[in-house]
């Protein structure tokens, strides 16, 4: 932005701010809930809420038309990661049926300063991302399942998110009209 003159690297500040704010939220949740599984659920739900709003922003910025198959959807998701988190996941491991794929991340900006303590191995730290994908796709009438199969925080070499197409949501008839 032209009107701002700061001696700080704004782009870096932005991504660190996001990382640290998210970290503060997760640790607050770990204090709020006794059960790590509940934290996972809450994070997923927060992601879902964000995804529902994010899709509008995405569509207005990219002018994307409706996707006709999962391959197009995967490309769009990849583009969204580049736009919003500045990372480029690789798309791979397509199921033979073409309705299931993996997003593979070399690095995950959300976990940049993070280490999982031994007793939180059940925590799915970045489940917000799964929620986000699910929420966003639901708004374009795609029901998907989304989960982590590998996580660098748990010692894996890369982070892998699996996305599976469940069904196409039909246009609902408005209440009172048959």
């Amino acid at each position: 932005m032209s009107r701002q003159n700061t001696r700080l690297d704004t782009k870096k500040v932005n991504s660190e701010l996001l990382t640290l704010t998210y970290g503060a939220l997760v640790s607050q949740m770990l204090r709020d809930f006794e059960n790590v599984e509940d934290v996972n659920k809450q994070l997923e739900r927060i992601g879902y809420n964000m995804g529902m709003r994010l899709i509008e922003d995405f569509l207005s910025r990219t002018n994307s038309p409706r996707c006709l198959d999962m391959r197009e959807t995967a490309d769009k998701i990849q583009l969204a990661f580049r736009m919003y988190l500045n990372v480029q996941p690789t798309i791979s491991n397509w199921a033979a049926s073409g309705d299931e794929f993996s997003l593979i991340f070399d690095s995950n900006p959300l976990t940049e300063f993070v280490e999982l303590p031994q007793d939180y191995q059940q925590l799915r730290y970045s489940s917000i991302i799964c929620g986000c994908i699910r929420g966003a796709l639901e708004m374009v009438q795609l029901e998907v399942q989304c989960w982590f199969t590998q996580d660098q925080l748990k010692g894996d070499a890369s982070t892998e998110i699996r996305v599976k197409f469940v069904r196409r949501l039909e246009d609902a008839v408005p209440a009172g009209e048959d």
Partner: peptide, 14 residues
């Protein structure tokens, strides 16, 4: 910028 939108959405969810 698109990245800033994420922070705003995260903030409102928090």
């Amino acid at each position: 910028m698109a990245e800033e939108a994420i922070f705003e959405y995260l903030h409102s969810e928090i």
